[in-house]
Structure formats: structure tokens, C-alpha cells
Amino acid sequence: MRFTDHCLRSEGADVILATSSDEKYPPENIIDGRSETFWTTTGMFPQEFIICFHKCVTISKITIQCYLVQTLRIEKTASKDPVDFEQCVEKELQYKEGELQREEFSFPEIQATNLRFIILAGYDAFVSVHRVIAEGIAQVF
């Protein structure tokens, strides 16, 4: 059994929705596999983005690398369309000046076709998301 990072453009992932857009820091940066690039919000909360896998995947761990994110909620759906999301976790993230936040969430293998990340609050008016990693195995229908 091979574990994969499903949140990579090279694995077929897409960011199908983002509530903010800055052409210098597009949401696609979240799934390029690099921590140096990022998506930035343009103020006000909540902010959200949805990553679509285009197939059902099994996820056992989600890692997010971000900056200035205070409260984060992660939701999932196994529906073909990005609807009927269920909450997986909501957490207040710790912040250290000048350091990228890295938060890991382990699950007893959730099934998902889409993940929605909702940034409910930030430590500043603008926050950034550098990378999302969803470890697991692909399901075949």
C-alpha cells in the first residue's frame, strides 16, 4: 500500500474555490508542493478554500503550513459535488512571530472527494496558506 499526498496538483488536485484572490499569490500555490509559495487572503474573515481530488480518497493525516492563522476549521465531503460538508476538526492554532505554523491533524481514515478549509480568524488582517498535505491512499470506484 502506497501512501500519497493527495493535495498536489501533480496528483490531480485542484483548488476549485478560494474567497480571496491576488494574482501574485494565487490559491493554486497551496497545491504546488512548495512551502516557499503561498495563497494570501485579502482581509476580513472567514476566508475559505476548497481542494477537489476528482476521485474519492482515504485520508489519515492532514498537515497545513500557514502564517497568522488563528482559528481553522477543516470539513470534508465524499459527495461528487462540493456539497454536504461535514466538520472534521476545528482548532485554535498557536503563533510564533516570524515562524511558519505547521499543524498536523490525524484521523481514523476519512473518505473525501473535497476538503474545505475555513479560516475563521487570524492574528492579523491578512493570513497566508503555504501548503496542505493530505496523506492517505486512493480509492478505486
Rank of each mutant, 00 (worst) to 15 (best):
E97V: 09
T4S: 12
C88K: 07
D84H: 13
Y95E: 05
E97W: 03
G136K: 06
D84G: 15
C88G: 03
R116F: 03
F141I: 14
S10K: 15
F107G: 12
A13N: 06
D22K: 07
R73G: 04
L8T: 04
E86Y: 03
D14Y: 11
D5C: 12
K91G: 02
T71L: 12
K55C: 00
V129P: 06
R131G: 06
P46S: 01
D32S: 02
T58M: 00
R102W: 04
C56E: 13
E104M: 04
M1K: 04
I30Q: 11
D81A: 12
A134R: 08
S60N: 14
I62D: 08
I137E: 08
F45G: 03
E103M: 07
F53I: 05
G122F: 03
Q101M: 08
D32R: 04
T42D: 00
F141W: 05
I50F: 02
T42G: 02
V140D: 13
A125C: 15
D32Q: 08
D32W: 00
L115D: 06
D84P: 05
W39D: 01
Q47Y: 05
I30T: 07
K55R: 10
E109Y: 10
Y67N: 13
R116E: 04
T63A: 08
I16D: 07
T4H: 10
K24P: 01
E28K: 09
F85V: 10
V83A: 07
F45R: 05
C66S: 15
T113L: 05
E75Y: 11
W39C: 06
N29Q: 13
H130M: 11
I74H: 02
Y25D: 07
C88S: 11
E75F: 07
S60Q: 13
A125L: 15
I31T: 00
I51M: 03
I59P: 09
F107N: 05
E11Y: 13
E86A: 12
T63N: 04
F45T: 06
H130K: 04
I16K: 13
T77K: 00
L68D: 10
Y123E: 05
C56A: 14
T113C: 14
T40G: 08
I50P: 01
I137C: 12
G33P: 08
W39M: 03
P26C: 06
S20F: 01
Q47K: 06
Q47M: 07
R34M: 08
E86D: 11
L68E: 11
I137Q: 09
E103S: 11
F3W: 01
S79Q: 12
A13R: 10
E11R: 14
F117M: 08
A18M: 05
E36A: 10
